[in-house]
Design a protein around this nucleic acid. Structure first.
Lengths: 207, 207
DNA sequence: ACTAACTTGTGAATGAATTCACAAAGCTTC
DNA sequence: GAAGCTTTGTGAATTCATTCACAAGTTAGT
């Protein structure tokens, strides 16, 4: 299959979110034009994005909302349950542990890990905080698919090396640092500082 | 000035973060090649990114670390203090209030706002939680530059409309929804669900 | 002062993503 | 079943971003 751009995947995700709202309101079809308006893009873009995966619409009519939502879930790999571990039970880790979106979208949090003695053994929103040294053994018993990395920048690369050795192929990184991983491991970085600086740039350089 | 791509701005932000580390270690010059390696890009990309704003390096030698860091701060608009308000004192709002990066980068949090009676009047990490109905009056006295939006999706657009009317030109949005704003207002959206779904897609569609 | 080794800055070339534009196909009305 | 209105799917054209490649400037060694 042709390589799909990251920007395309992000839009598919936006389309799905909107379709789920739309479906809940009982509406059964939608045109690329309306979907585009609601998701901040253009109808041509919507159709091009979908065309990479097949043709799901009816000319003259539009798309069946439940069918398109189902196709998008399938494309995005949301048909199955993904197993997630959270690394780092500090402030960000704790905030993530209570984030509802994981369960809603079929992401199951297996455990959180930390190295500090005053966190290990506690629970965060029903999630056990385990000693980071149990990571490899636990991962061997029940391999996680995704690791959410919420540790200080200084430790991030060392933890990533362990995660990679433990066989993890997908990392959501909250540490504001560039991570080195082999090419079969996918990393997405969420970086508040970067977003704030983009806004600062935009405010500074507007006409 | 020529329009600068968002991807460029995000890289500048990454370069700056790295230069600050590098400077703290007492190193005084760096080549585009090393900067690129540390930030996950190429030397040509580094030089092209910088060339939009001037020429800061010395041929044969590289860049002065403190000078380049200074230029980047200037370009990114970090020379001044930006005033920030947080809208929504729920879990995400509370997590953001304690985020150190704001102060570190010169972003001053003026206040948090919420509509629920059991939050208003409390403080979050030394930040007053005020009634959302005071927003307009407060903004008139001391106009915020940036609003961080941490309210439920359902309310997000209504709040944004108020923010826009109050004169705010930059919004960092944590609600997983597409916001409508006039073209002179910049929005950056941080969307966990989208990142997770990108990872799910990558795991599902790898060769 | 000359040579060798580096490294920048930048047009030109390439590659990637978005937009255009229109034929093909579906519905509705008469 | 024909005319009129709608909307998809997709090559072609365009716009945007990255990479190439090299002249020009700098340092160091002899």
């Amino acid at each position: 299959m042709k390589r799909i751009a990251d920007s395309t995947v992000r839009r598919l995700s936006a389309y799905l979110r909107f379709l789920e709202d739309f479906e809940a309101r009982g509406l059964s079809t939608i045109s690329s034009d309306e979907l585009a308006r609601r998701c901040g893009t253009t109808s041509a873009q919507v159709r091009k994005d979908l065309s990479f995966f097949g043709s799901f619409g009816k000319r003259g009519l539009g798309y069946s909302v439940p069918e398109l939502a189902g196709r998008l879930r399938e494309i995005l790999g949301l048909g199955r349950q993904w197993k997630v571990v959270i690394i780092g039970a500090g402030k960000i880790g704790a905030a993530l542990a209570q984030y509802r979106g994981f369960k809603q979208r079929g992401f199951k949090i297996l455990a959180a890990y930390d190295s500090s003695a005053d966190k290990v053994g506690k629970t965060l929103e029903g999630i056990a905080v385990r000693d980071i040294n149990h990571l490899e053994k636990d991962a061997h018993k029940e391999p996680p698919d995704i690791a959410v990395l919420a540790v200080p920048s200084e430790n991030a690369q060392a933890v990533v090396d362990r995660l990679v050795r433990a066989g993890i192929k997908a990392i959501l990184n909250f540490a504001p640092t560039q991570l080195q991983v082999p090419s079969d491991v996918t990393v997405k970085t969420v970086n508040m500082a970067m977003e704030l600086e983009s806004l600062s740039f935009a405010l500074t350089n507007r006409d």
